[in-house]
Design a protein around this nucleic acid. Structure first.
Length: 423
RNA sequence: GGAGAGGUGACAGAGUGGCCGAAUGUGGCGGUCUCGAAAACCGUUGGAUGCCAUUAGGUGUCCCGUGGGUUCAAAUCCCACCCUCUCCGCCA
């Protein structure tokens, strides 16, 4: 959410921003509602001031045991008028907030303007793309052949876009989670969080999933609970409606959670394998930082995510998203894409964003630079560190052998009872 | 799920209709004292938002879990909901 005052004072900047994102935003409605709101506010506040003044007189007269019937009668009328105005305001406020919540974030000045993902900018490639002297097998076939992934039975038990992991497959998933958690809590100094997998509407509003993207989440029927699409939601909302002590910043959290996405509108894309599914695991990094250095901190965050891939010996590249591919909430977003041999291209495995004060304003997360200082909004950052399902797929594919077995990357072996090869 | 208690400022804790944005204490900040510190003493210390002036500021409104209601007037009375705690039941 953007600052209402900023929107009011810079409508043309917002208009250009929407254009560069290729989006329509309810800007004109918003400006109009804001105008209405303030004019009514002036009226009603004058009346309230009058009422407060008279109330004091009434109190005084009663204390002196004098008659106050005349002004009481007058105030009955005034109070009714106030009530009417307040009702109008309530309606306007609600609409105004709704429009405000539907306006996307301002891209940072370093973000390239573009019209599609083709305008994203590759920043660098890292690691060696493996060469195979045999026909590369996609991870879904590798997994099924080794009897460590079962898509068919998952279709029976739940539905399409779900899968079971079995034996060494399940163990590999668990190894990846623990390896990443240990890396981030250890070398990178994050504090681990284990969060609820269900959140309420306020939290979904806070991080920006609602009101615009409700259809992408699973909702619990008859209850105000949503299955989290990412740990970003519960972990960012940890400090909703709080004023943090500035000396605690930056506040760095790492969380493993399952993630649930309805993938509405993704029919026909990545239908095979574990790349696009309704439930997957992810280790997420969430940071609360001071506004002054949030872009530096974003770079740090990206580096932390990169270390995961480096240690696993996977080739990847880092790309900067253009205005069209930023997403609703980000001011700047860098994606890590891992090399996926069966695709013959890089596949997104981590997305690292600076939201600046966009989420903090929605979720009302503030900090004080020092005791007694004015509260300011923090900047929130997050990034996958990294997506477990896709990472498992990448490990299977990149470490596959001619005989269909999988070499276990060195760093994962301690997490797999020393197993060196899945066969 | 049943019964009860409770939600007030950073924290503790008063306040049962008007003089309450809210006593008091603790903490924080500034000062006096001191070579310095502690103690003591004095002062100060919430958030949101509108209007005017925009350099300083001035002025108004709202906020006592949330939302409604009663009233000229609500932290205070009424209703609903949320959350916390205690006991019972159930359960991993």
């Amino acid at each position: 959410m953007l600052d209402l005052k900023f929107i009011r004072q810079n409508p043309e900047t917002i208009r250009e921003m929407l254009k560069s994102r290729g989006e329509e935003g309810p800007l004109d409605e918003l400006l109009d509602l804001d105008e209405q709101r303030r004019s009514i506010l002036v009226e009603v506040e004058q009346l309230k001031a009058r009422r407060n003044e008279v109330s004091e007189q009434v109190a005084k007269l009663k204390r002196e045991k004098k008659d106050a019937d005349d002004i009481i009668t007058e105030m009955k009328g005034v109070s009714q008028t106030i009530k009417d105005y307040d009702e109008q305001l309530r309606v306007i406020d609600e609409q105004l907030l709704d429009r405000q919540l539907r306006l996307p974030n301002m891209p940072h000045s370093s973000v390239p303007v573009g019209t599609s993902d083709e305008d994203n900018v590759e920043l660098r490639q890292e690691g060696q793309i493996p060469e195979f002297r045999f026909e590369v097998v996609p991870h879904w076939d590798l997994g099924v052949n080794l009897d460590i992934i079962d898509f068919e039975r998952a279709g029976k038990v739940t539905g399409s876009r779900f899968y079971f992991l079995k034996g060494q497959g399940a163990c590999l998933e668990r190894a990846l989670i623990n390896f990443m958690l240990d890396l981030h809590t250890g070398a990178h100094g994050y504090t681990e969080i284990f969060a609820p997998f269900l959140v309420n509407k306020e939290s979904a509003l806070g991080t920006g999933q609602l009101p615009k993207f409700g259809e992408d989440m699973f909702k619990v029927e008859g209850q105000d609970y949503y299955l989290i699409p990412t740990a970003e939601v519960p972990v960012t909302n940890l400090y909703r409606d709080e004023i943090l002590d500035g000396s605690l910043l930056p506040l760095n959290h790492v969380a493993y959670t399952a993630c649930f996405r309805s993938e509405a509108g993704a029919h026909g894309r990545d239908t095979r394998g574990v790349i696009r599914v309704h439930q997957f695991n992810k280790v997420e990094l969430v940071r609360f930082v001071e506004p002054d250095n949030s872009y530096q901190e974003l770079d740090t965050l990206v580096r932390h995510a990169e270390v995961v891939l480096q240690k696993l010996g996977l080739a990847y590249r880092v790309s900067q998203m253009c205005t069209a591919d930023l997403g609703f909430t980000a001011a700047k977003k860098l994606d890590l894409e891992v090399w996926m041999p069966s695709y013959g291209k890089y596949v997104e495995i981590s997305s690292c964003s600076n939201f600046e004060s966009f989420q903090a304003r929605r979720a009302n997360i503030r900090f004080r630079r020092e005791q007694g200082a004015k509260p300011e909004f923090v900047h929130t950052l997050n990034g996958s560190g990294v997506a477990i399902g896709r990472c498992l797929a990448a490990v299977l594919e990149n470490y596959q052998q001619a005989d269909g077995t999988i070499i276990v990357p060195e760093v994962l072996r301690p997490y797999m009872s020393g197993v060196k090869r899945i066969e």
